[in-house]
């Protein structure tokens, strides 16, 4: 097997930039590149068409959309999964154990590829088998489904732990009042488990925002892919990746701020963590 030796992109760039008579002077080269710094960066990142800022922001919007959708789907799967693991029959419990173990042991990148191809393929085969036309599944829906499936495994464990942390007397008391399971879930279990689940779920939200970047590998347009396109066209790799990193970081920090408030709200009326220690 002969492998083509991976060539670093910088080499290509170096050859391009050193071609017009810059054979001996590095200083000239730097002079040629530096004016592009201050004014050029602003121009590159400006949100109107010659700049690529708008593309990046659109990518960020898509990333946030997917992260929100995946987290919601993950919460739904997680709640059902936690209920199945805690109260389900032996078969349901074992199947859920397989689900959470496998998803947490296989890299997200592999899962995304596998579910992306398998999922779209399966749906299309089902449709053709039932006599419908094949459909093109939008990247948004596929991305949300795939990431949601992955998030579901993690949130199953988080929510299961949170439900176990509720003093069992509360649930027993609710049963003794004759509450139906639905009412019990809505009035007692979900609100009571929230303070225990929020830190873990907050972590999962942050992971979801970062995992959206992996969808770039299957060609879905979000922040990472937008950055890659912008950097590829303008050759300003460093600028654009730093800009994308800054956008992701801002999203994370902003989420932290909001999630801190949500956690404080969910713990209202409970002794503070610091006092308990």
């Amino acid at each position: 097997m002969v492998w083509s030796r991976p060539v670093h992109p910088s080499l290509l760039l170096a050859e391009n930039s050193s071609s017009p008579g810059a054979s001996h002077s590095g200083a000239k080269l730097i002079d040629a590149l530096l004016p592009a710094s201050a004014a050029g960066i602003i121009e590159l990142l400006s949100p109107v068409p010659p700049g690529w800022g708008g593309t990046l922001l659109l990518g960020l919007l898509h990333s946030i959309e997917i992260a929100v959708g995946a987290t919601c789907l993950g919460l739904l799967i997680g709640t059902c999964g936690a209920y199945g693991k805690l109260y389900g029959g032996p078969v349901v419990r074992d199947l859920l154990a397989v689900y959470t173990t496998v998803v947490r042991a296989v890299p997200e990148l592999v899962l995304i590829l596998l579910l992306y191809y398998a999922g779209t393929d399966l749906i299309n085969q089902l449709l053709t088998a039932m006599g419908y036309q094949r459909i093109d599944i939008s990247g948004l829906v596929a991305g949300i489904a795939v990431l949601g499936f992955v998030q579901g495994a993690y949130s199953t464990e988080v929510i299961r732990g949170a439900i176990l942390a509720i003093p069992q007397g509360q649930i027993e008391a609710a049963r003794a009042y004759g509450m139906s399971p639905g009412l019990l879930l809505r009035r007692i279990t979900l609100p009571a488990m929230l303070p225990f689940a929020i830190p873990g779920l907050a972590n999962l939200w942050l992971i979801a925002t970062k995992d959206t970047a992996l969808l770039a590998v299957v060609g879905f347009f979000e922040l990472a892919l937008a950055t890659r396109q912008a950097a590829g066209v303008t050759k300003a790799y460093f600028t654009f990746y730093v800009a994308a990193g800054a956008l992701y970081l801002m999203l994370s920090l902003f989420s932290n701020l909001i999630l801190g408030r949500v956690e404080a709200w969910s713990r209202r009326g409970m002794p503070s963590v610091k006092e308990a220690r």
Binding site: P9, K210, A213, L214, A224, F238, V242, G245
Partner: peptide, 14 residues
């Protein structure tokens, strides 16, 4: 706070 993919691409391409 940033995805590993972006860090990787920032180092390699940037």
């Amino acid at each position: 706070g940033t995805p590993l993919l972006i860090q990787l691409w920032l180092l390699y391409y940037g």
